[in-house]
Amino acid sequence: MGNLLTTGFHLIAGVEEHAGEAHKAEGHHGPSFIGLAVYVLLTVVILFFMMSKAKSGLNQRVFKNSYTSIFEQLYLFLENMCVGIIGSHGRKYIPMMMVFWLVIFVSNVIALFMPTAPTADLSFNLGMALIAVGYVQYEGIRANGVIGHFSHFAGPKLPVALIPISIMIFVIELISEVMKNVSLSLRLFGNIEGGHQAVLAMNKIGDPVFIPVGAFLLPIKILTCVVQALIFCLLTCVYISLVTAHHDDHVEAAAAH
């Protein structure tokens, strides 16, 4: 296992070095495309390794396998979050939230031990944000129809004389929707990459006496790993709840009838 890990790290380092040189020559920061692919692959391998371990304990009546227990707790936590924020129909979003949570968390943990990580790359985070916000728009259109969904952007129905205000609100809302992508991706990127930079800067302080001062940031970074995964999922839930709130009202009204 140790040899495998060492070989993996060397592979990543080699790929990074090889691809990074050409990339940096073009003025880019963060991992190259190949480097990011290797990190994502590593994330996926770790994820599937943990899920395989957890899956082996699913046939027990009471989950005694520690992996299974952890995944169960995560599932129940996300279920509470989805149902609490989105409403009774929020359960169907649990798989998506769980995938987001797992990928972000594992990537963040990789960032603790590696020079970089998928979530330390803004492009990767933007990809996740585009999926999340895109899915929110899809759900909004599914719940309210195309016209109904986009008419919400214009705010409440105003008299004809105030149509310019509605147009302004519409434009602001459109910008707001675009900014959701920026908000989700930049926050995650800033926290993880910022953590790296903070550790590097603090290590430089301890360099003369050979003390890795940056290591003292590890507890905060571990907390950041969890919190950032949580915030990404939480905000996605909030965005979904905003566009499907009417849908929930309809469901409740139908249930009441």
Binding site: H29, F33, L36, V44, M51, M98, V99, V103, P118, S123
Partner: peptide, 21 residues
């Protein structure tokens, strides 16, 4: 530091990961 290729590739990865996981 944005690379649109990475972003599109990430979207592809998640489109595969969602149903598989």
């Amino acid at each position: 530091p944005l690379d649109f290729g990475k972003t599109i590739g990430t979207i592809g990865v998640f489109l595969i990961l969602f149903p598989v996981i």
